[in-house]
């Protein structure tokens, strides 16, 4: 695999900016005097734990979103499942209209507090946009290509594997990116369902009115979100089929 599609600028700018941001945060927080509440919230082990929980939440929920949404999207775009597609779209719209915090809170009543509840809420919230994206993308493939593929003798599985899925790769990757971003965001709300994560720092900062705690939590979350998005954008660049690139 060649790596010629990722330019130096793309490769360097974001991590450097994030690194500088984190460094500044670290220098600032180690050079101000903290009161006992702040010390308690910002002790190193605690922050690391929250950060790790946040990454875990994002990774696990994204994994399940993809495992559910992609096959389901492919299935719903097959001819025999056409009648079910509008139902899925309607459900997706309803899901988009539901506030994430409300969904998480309701799940807490039903399943109790804990990481599992938070994960289920995050997956439920992100499955629908990724699903509708997958369906839209598969439907956007030029029908004459499918006609040509069948016309030269590809079996239905062959058409899916050799034409539809490769052509849908950009869209699948966009789905992955969407899911990741949504999950980093919803992950901050996992704190309200007892799921842990950086949301705990922000919440603590707000309730105890400690600005520094708030800022550490928020900046770490922002950095994580931007980092994840950057990684996803690199993957998008690298993994899209070459023939589909817009410019040379």
């Amino acid at each position: 695999m060649k790596w010629d599609r990722i330019t130096k600028g793309k490769l360097l700018v974001t991590p450097l900016v994030l690194l500088a941001l984190l460094l500044a945060l670290y220098l600032w927080i180690t050079n101000v005097s903290l009161d006992s509440i702040e010390k308690n919230s910002l002790n190193g082990g605690q922050v690391r734990l929250y950060l790790w929980q946040q990454i875990e939440l994002t990774a696990i929920s994204t994994f399940f979103v993809l495992v559910i949404a992609l096959p389901l999207g492919i299935l719903l775009s097959r001819g025999f499942a056409r009648p079910a597609a509008p139902v899925a779209i309607a459900l997706a719209n309803l899901g988009q209209a539901t506030p994430a915090i409300g969904l998480l809170a309701l799940l807490t009543f039903w399943l109790g507090i804990g990481q599992r509840t938070a994960l289920i809420g995050m997956v439920a919230y992100a499955v629908l946009p990724v699903l509708s994206n997958t369906m839209a993308g598969l439907r956007a493939i030029d029908p004459t290509l499918l006609d040509a593929a069948r016309g030269i003798g590809m079996s239905p599985v062959g058409v899916l594997g050799r034409v539809e899925l490769p052509l849908a790769v950009p869209l699948i990757l966009a789905g992955v990116r969407t899911a990741l971003i949504l999950n980093v965001g919803t992950g901050t709300l996992a704190a309200f369902a007892g799921g842990g994560g950086l949301g705990n720092l922000i919440t603590a900062g707000i309730t105890t009115q400690r600005t520094r705690v708030l800022i550490v939590g928020a900046v770490l979350t922002v950095c994580l979100a931007l980092l994840v998005d950057w990684l996803a954008s690199l993957a998008e660049l690298q993994l899209s089929p070459r023939g589909l690139e817009v410019h040379q």
Binding site: G185, T188, I202, G205, I215, G217, A218, V222, A225
Partner: peptide, 17 residues
Amino acid sequence: GTILTIPSYALLGLLIP
């Protein structure tokens, strides 16, 4: 787009100070 990438709860956290 960058703003949209930032989780809303974190952005609120940054705006409160």
